[in-house]
Amino acid sequence: MSHLKTKHLLGIKNLNKEDILLIFQTADNFKEVINRPIKKVPSLRDVTIANIFFENSTRTKLSFELAEKRLSADVINFSASGSSVKKGETLLDTVNNILAMKVDIVVIRHSSPGAPHFLANHIDAIIVNAGDGTHEHPTQALLDTYSIREKCGEVNGKKVVILGDILHSRVALSNIFALQTLGAEVMVCGPATLLPKHVGELGVLVENDVRAALEWCDIANVLRIQLERQEMRYFPSLREYSKFFGINRELLDSLKKEIIIMHPGPINRGVEITSDVADSDHSIILQQVENGVAIRMAVLYLLAGRVD
Protein backbone atom coordinates (compact mmCIF):
# COMPACT_ATOMS: atom_id res chain seq x y z
CA MET A 1 0.00 0.00 0.00
CA SER A 2 1.44 3.36 -0.92
CA HIS A 3 1.33 6.45 1.24
CA LEU A 4 -0.34 9.83 1.10
CA LYS A 5 2.04 12.65 0.29
CA THR A 6 0.87 14.55 3.32
CA LYS A 7 1.23 13.92 7.03
CA HIS A 8 -2.07 15.53 7.96
CA LEU A 9 -5.41 15.99 6.25
CA LEU A 10 -5.78 19.75 6.56
CA GLY A 11 -7.60 20.43 3.34
CA ILE A 12 -8.20 19.18 -0.18
CA LYS A 13 -5.86 21.94 -1.29
CA ASN A 14 -2.96 19.96 0.16
CA LEU A 15 -3.86 16.78 -1.76
CA ASN A 16 -2.99 15.88 -5.32
CA LYS A 17 -4.94 13.62 -7.65
CA GLU A 18 -2.92 10.51 -6.71
CA ASP A 19 -3.67 11.10 -3.03
CA ILE A 20 -7.39 11.35 -3.71
CA LEU A 21 -7.44 8.24 -5.89
CA LEU A 22 -5.50 6.32 -3.23
CA ILE A 23 -8.09 7.35 -0.65
CA PHE A 24 -10.89 6.20 -3.01
CA GLN A 25 -9.19 2.88 -3.63
CA THR A 26 -8.74 2.32 0.09
CA ALA A 27 -12.34 3.35 0.73
CA ASP A 28 -13.49 0.73 -1.80
CA ASN A 29 -11.94 -1.95 0.40
CA PHE A 30 -13.44 -0.54 3.57
CA LYS A 31 -16.85 -0.20 1.98
CA GLU A 32 -16.74 -3.89 1.34
CA VAL A 33 -15.71 -4.46 4.97
CA ILE A 34 -18.59 -2.45 6.45
CA ASN A 35 -21.09 -4.42 4.43
CA ARG A 36 -19.90 -7.68 5.95
CA PRO A 37 -21.64 -9.25 8.95
CA ILE A 38 -18.52 -8.49 11.01
CA LYS A 39 -17.85 -4.87 10.22
CA LYS A 40 -14.66 -4.43 12.18
CA VAL A 41 -10.99 -4.74 11.24
CA PRO A 42 -8.02 -4.56 13.61
CA SER A 43 -6.00 -2.10 11.52
CA LEU A 44 -5.69 0.69 14.12
CA ARG A 45 -5.74 -1.47 17.22
CA ASP A 46 -2.97 0.38 19.04
CA VAL A 47 -3.87 3.85 17.79
CA THR A 48 -5.61 6.44 19.96
CA ILE A 49 -7.76 9.05 18.28
CA ALA A 50 -9.25 12.15 19.88
CA ASN A 51 -12.30 13.74 18.30
CA ILE A 52 -12.16 17.36 19.37
CA PHE A 53 -15.23 19.30 18.32
CA PHE A 54 -15.45 22.99 19.14
CA GLU A 55 -18.56 23.35 17.03
CA ASN A 56 -21.77 21.41 17.13
CA SER A 57 -21.85 18.39 14.90
CA THR A 58 -23.94 15.30 14.83
CA ARG A 59 -23.32 13.39 11.65
CA THR A 60 -19.67 14.21 11.01
CA LYS A 61 -18.80 13.28 14.56
CA LEU A 62 -20.83 10.07 14.44
CA SER A 63 -19.31 9.18 11.11
CA PHE A 64 -15.75 9.71 12.34
CA GLU A 65 -16.42 7.81 15.54
CA LEU A 66 -17.91 4.88 13.68
CA ALA A 67 -14.98 4.85 11.24
CA GLU A 68 -12.53 4.88 14.14
CA LYS A 69 -14.31 2.08 16.00
CA ARG A 70 -14.54 -0.09 12.90
CA LEU A 71 -10.79 0.27 12.57
CA SER A 72 -10.47 -0.83 16.24
CA ALA A 73 -8.87 2.46 17.34
CA ASP A 74 -9.23 3.70 20.90
CA VAL A 75 -11.47 6.76 20.77
CA ILE A 76 -11.94 9.71 23.08
CA ASN A 77 -14.33 12.57 22.50
CA PHE A 78 -14.13 16.19 23.55
CA SER A 79 -16.84 18.69 22.78
CA ALA A 80 -17.07 22.34 23.66
CA SER A 81 -19.60 24.63 22.13
CA GLY A 82 -18.28 28.06 21.38
CA SER A 83 -14.63 28.88 21.35
CA SER A 84 -12.25 27.62 23.97
CA VAL A 85 -10.76 31.09 24.23
CA LYS A 86 -14.01 32.41 25.64
CA LYS A 87 -13.75 29.81 28.36
CA GLY A 88 -10.28 31.04 29.24
CA GLU A 89 -8.26 28.21 27.75
CA THR A 90 -6.54 28.51 24.40
CA LEU A 91 -6.99 25.93 21.68
CA LEU A 92 -3.36 24.92 21.99
CA ASP A 93 -3.66 24.37 25.74
CA THR A 94 -6.81 22.32 25.30
CA VAL A 95 -5.24 20.10 22.68
CA ASN A 96 -1.94 19.78 24.54
CA ASN A 97 -3.88 18.63 27.58
CA ILE A 98 -5.49 15.94 25.53
CA LEU A 99 -2.20 14.99 23.88
CA ALA A 100 -0.63 14.55 27.31
CA MET A 101 -2.88 11.51 27.50
CA LYS A 102 -0.90 10.06 24.57
CA VAL A 103 -3.08 10.57 21.56
CA ASP A 104 -1.85 9.75 18.05
CA ILE A 105 -4.46 11.39 15.84
CA VAL A 106 -6.58 14.47 16.46
CA VAL A 107 -9.78 14.96 14.50
CA ILE A 108 -10.73 18.59 14.93
CA ARG A 109 -13.68 20.75 14.08
CA HIS A 110 -13.32 24.44 14.89
CA SER A 111 -14.97 27.72 13.94
CA SER A 112 -11.68 29.39 12.95
CA PRO A 113 -10.36 28.95 9.43
CA GLY A 114 -6.86 27.52 9.73
CA ALA A 115 -7.27 26.15 13.27
CA PRO A 116 -6.15 22.64 12.16
CA HIS A 117 -3.16 24.17 10.32
CA PHE A 118 -2.24 26.04 13.50
CA LEU A 119 -2.32 22.78 15.46
CA ALA A 120 -0.35 20.93 12.81
CA ASN A 121 2.41 23.54 13.11
CA HIS A 122 2.63 23.34 16.86
CA ILE A 123 1.86 19.82 18.04
CA ASP A 124 3.16 16.37 17.24
CA ALA A 125 -0.03 14.45 16.53
CA ILE A 126 -1.53 13.79 13.11
CA ILE A 127 -4.30 16.28 12.42
CA VAL A 128 -7.50 15.58 10.51
CA ASN A 129 -9.62 18.60 9.65
CA ALA A 130 -13.29 17.86 10.28
CA GLY A 131 -14.30 21.39 9.28
CA ASP A 132 -12.57 24.70 10.02
CA GLY A 133 -14.95 27.63 9.96
CA THR A 134 -15.81 28.67 6.44
CA HIS A 135 -12.58 27.23 5.04
CA GLU A 136 -12.46 23.49 4.31
CA HIS A 137 -14.22 20.24 5.14
CA PRO A 138 -12.01 17.78 3.28
CA THR A 139 -13.61 14.47 4.27
CA GLN A 140 -17.00 15.76 3.13
CA ALA A 141 -15.60 16.66 -0.29
CA LEU A 142 -13.89 13.28 -0.50
CA LEU A 143 -17.11 11.43 0.26
CA ASP A 144 -19.04 13.64 -2.15
CA THR A 145 -16.68 13.03 -5.05
CA TYR A 146 -16.43 9.36 -4.08
CA SER A 147 -20.22 9.13 -4.28
CA ILE A 148 -20.19 10.77 -7.72
CA ARG A 149 -17.54 8.31 -8.86
CA GLU A 150 -19.62 5.44 -7.51
CA LYS A 151 -22.81 6.64 -9.21
CA CYS A 152 -21.35 7.85 -12.53
CA GLY A 153 -18.24 5.71 -12.94
CA GLU A 154 -15.92 8.68 -12.90
CA VAL A 155 -15.72 12.31 -11.85
CA ASN A 156 -13.65 13.49 -14.80
CA GLY A 157 -15.72 15.49 -17.29
CA LYS A 158 -18.84 15.70 -15.12
CA LYS A 159 -20.62 18.98 -14.69
CA VAL A 160 -21.35 19.69 -11.04
CA VAL A 161 -23.24 22.65 -9.67
CA ILE A 162 -22.90 23.58 -6.02
CA LEU A 163 -26.04 25.36 -5.00
CA GLY A 164 -26.87 27.69 -2.16
CA ASP A 165 -24.85 29.41 0.54
CA ILE A 166 -21.33 29.27 -0.90
CA LEU A 167 -20.11 32.20 1.19
CA HIS A 168 -20.49 30.48 4.56
CA SER A 169 -19.73 26.99 3.33
CA ARG A 170 -16.61 24.94 3.95
CA VAL A 171 -18.21 22.12 1.99
CA ALA A 172 -18.31 24.27 -1.15
CA LEU A 173 -14.66 25.23 -1.07
CA SER A 174 -13.42 21.68 -0.45
CA ASN A 175 -15.76 20.36 -3.13
CA ILE A 176 -14.51 22.93 -5.65
CA PHE A 177 -10.89 21.90 -5.00
CA ALA A 178 -11.66 18.16 -5.12
CA LEU A 179 -13.85 18.31 -8.23
CA GLN A 180 -11.32 20.42 -10.10
CA THR A 181 -8.47 18.11 -9.11
CA LEU A 182 -10.45 15.16 -10.47
CA GLY A 183 -11.30 16.92 -13.73
CA ALA A 184 -14.94 17.93 -13.23
CA GLU A 185 -16.40 21.23 -14.37
CA VAL A 186 -17.79 23.24 -11.47
CA MET A 187 -20.45 25.90 -11.25
CA VAL A 188 -21.66 27.71 -8.14
CA CYS A 189 -25.18 29.05 -7.97
CA GLY A 190 -27.07 31.07 -5.39
CA PRO A 191 -28.15 34.59 -4.57
CA ALA A 192 -25.23 36.95 -5.26
CA THR A 193 -25.08 37.85 -1.57
CA LEU A 194 -24.21 34.24 -0.75
CA LEU A 195 -21.48 33.90 -3.38
CA PRO A 196 -18.00 35.17 -2.48
CA LYS A 197 -17.18 38.19 -4.65
CA HIS A 198 -14.03 36.57 -6.04
CA VAL A 199 -15.26 32.97 -6.32
CA GLY A 200 -15.02 33.07 -10.13
CA GLU A 201 -11.26 33.47 -9.80
CA LEU A 202 -11.16 29.91 -8.45
CA GLY A 203 -12.00 28.79 -11.99
CA VAL A 204 -15.67 28.02 -11.46
CA LEU A 205 -18.69 29.24 -13.39
CA VAL A 206 -20.97 31.59 -11.49
CA GLU A 207 -24.73 31.59 -11.96
CA ASN A 208 -27.62 33.23 -10.12
CA ASP A 209 -30.44 31.39 -11.86
CA VAL A 210 -31.21 27.94 -10.47
CA ARG A 211 -33.02 26.68 -13.57
CA ALA A 212 -30.10 27.66 -15.81
CA ALA A 213 -27.71 25.94 -13.41
CA LEU A 214 -29.74 22.74 -13.30
CA GLU A 215 -30.10 22.64 -17.09
CA TRP A 216 -26.32 22.85 -17.33
CA CYS A 217 -25.30 20.24 -14.77
CA ASP A 218 -25.16 16.47 -14.42
CA ILE A 219 -25.08 16.64 -10.65
CA ALA A 220 -26.42 19.24 -8.21
CA ASN A 221 -24.91 19.40 -4.75
CA VAL A 222 -27.42 21.37 -2.70
CA LEU A 223 -25.97 23.05 0.37
CA ARG A 224 -27.66 23.72 3.63
CA ILE A 225 -28.60 27.30 4.33
CA GLN A 226 -26.20 28.06 7.19
CA LEU A 227 -28.52 30.13 9.32
CA GLU A 228 -26.23 29.77 12.32
CA ARG A 229 -23.18 31.14 10.54
CA GLN A 230 -24.75 34.33 9.21
CA GLU A 231 -24.21 37.44 11.29
CA MET A 232 -26.61 39.49 9.15
CA ARG A 233 -29.41 38.90 6.68
CA TYR A 234 -28.14 37.87 3.27
CA PHE A 235 -31.58 37.38 1.78
CA PRO A 236 -34.99 38.76 2.76
CA SER A 237 -36.76 35.60 3.91
CA LEU A 238 -36.63 31.81 3.88
CA ARG A 239 -39.89 31.86 1.95
CA GLU A 240 -38.34 33.90 -0.83
CA TYR A 241 -35.17 31.79 -0.81
CA SER A 242 -37.18 28.62 -1.12
CA LYS A 243 -39.29 30.04 -3.92
CA PHE A 244 -36.39 31.28 -6.06
CA PHE A 245 -33.44 29.09 -5.04
CA GLY A 246 -35.03 25.95 -3.63
CA ILE A 247 -35.26 22.69 -5.56
CA ASN A 248 -38.60 20.99 -5.90
CA ARG A 249 -40.06 18.12 -7.88
CA GLU A 250 -41.77 20.35 -10.42
CA LEU A 251 -38.51 22.08 -11.29
CA LEU A 252 -36.67 18.77 -11.64
CA ASP A 253 -39.40 17.27 -13.81
CA SER A 254 -39.32 20.23 -16.17
CA LEU A 255 -35.61 19.75 -16.96
CA LYS A 256 -34.57 18.24 -20.26
CA LYS A 257 -32.57 15.48 -18.56
CA GLU A 258 -32.31 13.65 -15.28
CA ILE A 259 -29.77 14.95 -12.81
CA ILE A 260 -28.38 13.57 -9.58
CA ILE A 261 -29.15 15.40 -6.34
CA MET A 262 -26.71 15.49 -3.45
CA HIS A 263 -26.83 17.19 -0.07
CA PRO A 264 -24.20 17.14 2.70
CA GLY A 265 -26.89 17.34 5.40
CA PRO A 266 -28.47 18.20 7.65
CA ILE A 267 -31.34 19.11 5.33
CA ASN A 268 -33.65 22.03 5.93
CA ARG A 269 -36.60 20.31 4.32
CA GLY A 270 -38.77 22.76 2.44
CA VAL A 271 -36.07 25.43 2.36
CA GLU A 272 -33.26 24.50 -0.01
CA ILE A 273 -34.82 21.22 -1.05
CA THR A 274 -38.30 19.70 -0.79
CA SER A 275 -38.91 16.26 0.72
CA ASP A 276 -40.10 14.72 -2.55
CA VAL A 277 -36.72 15.61 -4.08
CA ALA A 278 -34.61 14.61 -1.09
CA ASP A 279 -36.29 11.23 -0.88
CA SER A 280 -36.52 10.59 -4.63
CA ASP A 281 -34.57 8.24 -6.88
CA HIS A 282 -32.56 11.21 -8.10
CA SER A 283 -31.12 11.65 -4.66
CA ILE A 284 -27.97 9.90 -3.43
CA ILE A 285 -28.05 11.61 -0.06
CA LEU A 286 -28.08 8.40 2.00
CA GLN A 287 -25.34 6.82 -0.12
CA GLN A 288 -23.24 9.87 0.74
CA VAL A 289 -23.72 9.12 4.43
CA GLU A 290 -22.73 5.48 4.01
CA ASN A 291 -19.70 6.43 1.95
CA GLY A 292 -18.73 8.93 4.62
CA VAL A 293 -17.78 6.12 6.99
CA ALA A 294 -15.73 4.28 4.35
CA ILE A 295 -13.93 7.47 3.29
CA ARG A 296 -13.09 8.40 6.88
CA MET A 297 -11.84 4.88 7.56
CA ALA A 298 -9.60 5.21 4.50
CA VAL A 299 -8.26 8.61 5.54
CA LEU A 300 -7.50 7.52 9.10
CA TYR A 301 -5.99 4.26 7.95
CA LEU A 302 -3.70 5.93 5.43
CA LEU A 303 -2.61 8.70 7.78
CA ALA A 304 -2.01 6.26 10.64
CA GLY A 305 0.34 4.35 8.40
CA ARG A 306 2.81 6.94 9.48
CA VAL A 307 2.29 6.53 13.21
CA ASP A 308 5.57 5.15 14.54
Binding site: K13, P113, G114, D132, G133, T134, H135, E136, R170, L173, P196, K197, H198, V199, E201, L202
Partner: peptide
Protein backbone atom coordinates in the same frame (compact mmCIF):
# COMPACT_ATOMS: atom_id res chain seq x y z
CA UNK B 1 -7.78 41.68 2.02
CA UNK B 2 -10.74 40.45 0.01
CA UNK B 3 -9.57 38.60 -3.07
CA UNK B 4 -8.75 35.18 -4.42
CA UNK B 5 -6.61 34.35 -1.37
CA UNK B 6 -9.31 35.23 1.17
CA UNK B 7 -11.77 33.20 -0.90
CA UNK B 8 -9.44 30.18 -0.93
CA UNK B 9 -8.88 30.46 2.81
CA UNK B 10 -12.55 30.91 3.65
CA UNK B 11 -11.78 34.13 5.46
CA UNK B 12 -13.80 37.29 5.55
Amino acid sequence: HEGLTSTSLGMR
